[in-house]
């Protein structure tokens, strides 16, 4: 998969010859038909529904086919508050999706627990258990924000590599496809986070 010189490429394109690579073709096809998993958890789901409906129309980006089965879905939009009761089901659904799969963490609750962060029953971010590709802040984020996240995800897919050291996770046999499902413990989910993928940001304060 040798890279063609960009200048030569645009010169060829001007003459009506379109040059592409397997990787570009593959990513182009994938990024323009992302099928989301059809499920909503809280008020963010209403915004997700609005995004799918005619006014905002996620079909313009190839994401209109909301699948009710994880077997047919490429994208999981975690839209809303993830309670600790619900978290194992989310992780299990993610595990049941076929590779390649992506996650958009929509809204403050899915990112960090949001306004319910101090509560006893709300998970403080779905990225504790599954790898998240795009985060959208907001409470709830507007449909435009979800569309923006969708476009960011498309950009991310477009940059994924087929071969080499930094190739996409689903093409790497060493990368896991399933993640451990947390169990209900005495006081909290056990484990409280998947240490392999959860890397909380460190806040550095100036003393």
């Amino acid at each position: 998969m040798s890279d063609i010189d960009e200048g030569l490429r645009s010169e060829l394109q001007r003459q009506g010859i379109w040059v592409t690579s397997m990787q570009e073709l593959y990513n182009w096809g994938r990024k323009n038909s992302i099928w989301p998993l059809q499920f909503g958890l809280a008020c963010c789901a209403i915004e997700m529904i609005a995004t799918a409906a005619s006014r905002y129309d996620i079909a313009r980006f190839g994401g209109e086919v909301f699948r009710p089965s994880p077997r047919q879905a490429d994208l999981m939009i975690v839209a809303g508050t993830v309670t600790k009761k619900m978290a194992p089901q989310i992780v299990r659904l993610y595990n049941q999706m076929p590779d390649p799969k992506y996650v958009i963490s929509m809204g403050a609750c899915a990112i960090s627990g949001g306004p319910f962060k101090q509560g006893y029953n709300v998970l403080k971010g779905i990225d504790r258990y599954i790898p998240v590709d795009v985060y959208i802040p907001g409470c709830p984020p507007r449909p435009e924000a979800l569309l923006h996240a969708f476009m960011e995800l498309q950009r991310k897919i477009d940059e994924q590599k087929l071969t080499g050291a930094g190739k996409a996770e689903h093409l790497d046999p060493d990368q896991p496809s399933e993640f451990p499902v947390p169990a209900f413990g005495g006081h909290d989910l056990e484990p409280a986070a998947n240490a392999d993928i959860f890397r909380p940001m460190k806040m550095e304060r100036n003393q």
Partner: peptide, 20 residues
């Protein structure tokens, strides 16, 4: 040639609603 299969317990499960 490209995509390695990654089967697993939950991926191969019959029921697909997230509930055991």
């Amino acid at each position: 040639f490209f995509q390695p299969p990654k089967p697993g317990m939950e991926k191969n499960a019959t029921y697909e609603c997230g509930v055991e």
